[in-house]
Amino acid sequence: MGQEDFAIDVKGLRTQFDDFVVHDGLDLTVKQGEILGVVGGSGTGKSVLLRTIIGLNKPAAGTIKVFGQETEGYSGEEYQRLRQNWGVLFQDGALFTSLTVAQNVQVPLREYFNMPQDLMDEIASYKISMAGLPPDAGPKFPSDLSGGMRKRAGLARALALDPKILFLDEPTAGLDPIGAAAFDELVVRLNHTLGLTVFLVTHDLDTLHATCDRIAVLAEKKVLVLGTMKEMISFDHPWVWEYFHGPRARAAMP
């Protein structure tokens, strides 16, 4: 598989805050069209990694390439066009609280394109239903929604521009088991129908089993192992073993 076939290609990444080094010499590849789960203990920098790849954090060293393009050194319009390639779902949705759900979904549309209002409304309602929300969710404000619905609304906004990569930061955190399973199903469905590449930071073993093609384990400031679930289960490392074979893991295994 050539270099250009990777959706995300991280090499030698080093991130640090003042003196505290979070990642050092981290390498990670995400194939196009795959769902990659990223796991690690608390404090191993999963969210920092996600934020660095999408450009919210400046790396101290290393390169990040998205679809073969380096993400550093862009400015203004070029970077805006690059950014349209990915959508991000933050924990709890990070919806703009002063706008309705439909208006939230329309923010990227309004920002980049000059569309008539009815077309934007139609696209917004299509994304809202794609995200599994009921049709009356559009005019509601984020504070009127439950946690699960907020996440789906955030997902609808992340998908507004039909991005090629979807970044999910702990999407099933705080959801009841039924809601979490439904969300997993949604992610798999979107991956199949839209060919989305998904970068999924999670703690949820059920999600890992149900959705991920490959899993990356973050530990010791780098990616310790990157492979399928089968490879994870047989990997010889104390933390990895405990993660995938502990009491909760066995309950989650199919």
């Binding site: 934020r51 999408i54 450009g55 919210l56 970077y79 805006q80 950014r83 349209q84 990915w86 959508g87 991000v88 933050f90 924990q91 709890d92 990070a94 919806l95 703009f96 609280t97 923010v107 990227p108 920002e111 980049y112 955030g154 906004r157």
Partner: peptide, 17 residues
Amino acid sequence: GSMKLNEELDAMRTIGL
């Protein structure tokens, strides 16, 4: 400040605002 707390500023940046 509340928007920052709610990660709305981050969401804006990722959308390109």
